[in-house]
Amino acid sequence: MRRARRFNINGILVNAAALVLVLSYALPYVYLLMTSIKPAADVQQIPPSFLPAVVSLENFREVLQSSALPKAFASSLAVAVLTTVLSLAVAVPAAYVATQYRRRITTLFLLFALVTRMVPSVSLGVPLFQLLKSLGLLDTIPGLVLAHTSAAVPLALLLMSAFFEGVPKELEEAARMDGCTRFQAFRKIILPVMIGGIAVTALFTFITSWNEFLYALLLTSEATKTAPIVIAEYNSVYGLAWGAMTAAAVLYSLPVIVVTLALQKQIVGGLTFGAVKG
C-alpha cells in the first residue's frame, strides 16, 4: 500500500494537469452543447451566459423538421463510407508492401505521402475543381469521394505503415511455408492480425471525410451538399440562426463520438499495438 500514498502526492498533480488539458480542449465543445439546449431567444443574449437558464429542445426540433439537414446527413454518410472503403483498399496493401519490402523507392514513396499531407488543401481546391469538372463529377457523390480519398490515402498510408512496422517479417514467411501464396498470407494471416490497426485507420479516415469542409464547399452545390456546409449556411440563408446551427452541429458530432467511444478499446489497443507477440 505504499503506492497509495505516492498516488496522493503525485496522483493529484497528474490528475489536475490532465483535467486542465481536458478542459482546454473540451471547453468549446461544452459551450456548443450548452448553447444548443438554450431556447432560441436566449442564444444571442448579451452578455452571453455559459449555462442555459432554461433547458429547451426547441433548436433540435427546428433543425430536424427542416428537410435540408437529413439529406445532408445522408450525403455526408455516403461520402465518408465510400471514402473510407476506397482509401483502405488502396492504403492497406500499399503500406504493407512499402514496409515489408523495404527498398529506397518504398521509403521515398512513404516520404512523398507525408509531403502531400503538408500541402494546404486550399491550394489543391482549384485543381481538384478543374479535374472534377472535366470528368463531369462536380456536385456528385463519386466526385467528392475521389477528392476526399486523395486527402485520406496519404493519412491512411502513414498510419497503416506505422502499424505494419510492428509486424515481424517471419509471420508472412511462416504462412508461406505453411502453404500460402504471398497474397493468401496477407489475407489469411496479416490482415486478421492487423484488424485493430485497420479499425483505427478506418475511423480516422471516416472522420477526415465526415468533418471535411473546404472541398465539400468547392465541389458540391445543391445535389450533394454535405452536412458541414448546411450547418455553416444556418448563418447566411436563415439569417443568424445560432441556435439551430449549434443543434445541427451537436447532432452531426454525435455519430463520431459514439463510434469512437464504442471502439475505445480497439483504438487504444491499435495505437499501442507495437510488436505482435507470437
Partner: peptide, 20 residues
Amino acid sequence: VDPKDRDIAMVFQSYALYPH
C-alpha cells in the same frame, strides 16, 4: 519453386506463431 510447393516445414527463431 515457391516455398509452399517445396513440401518443407520451418521453425523460426521467433517461432512466428499466428497471434490471432
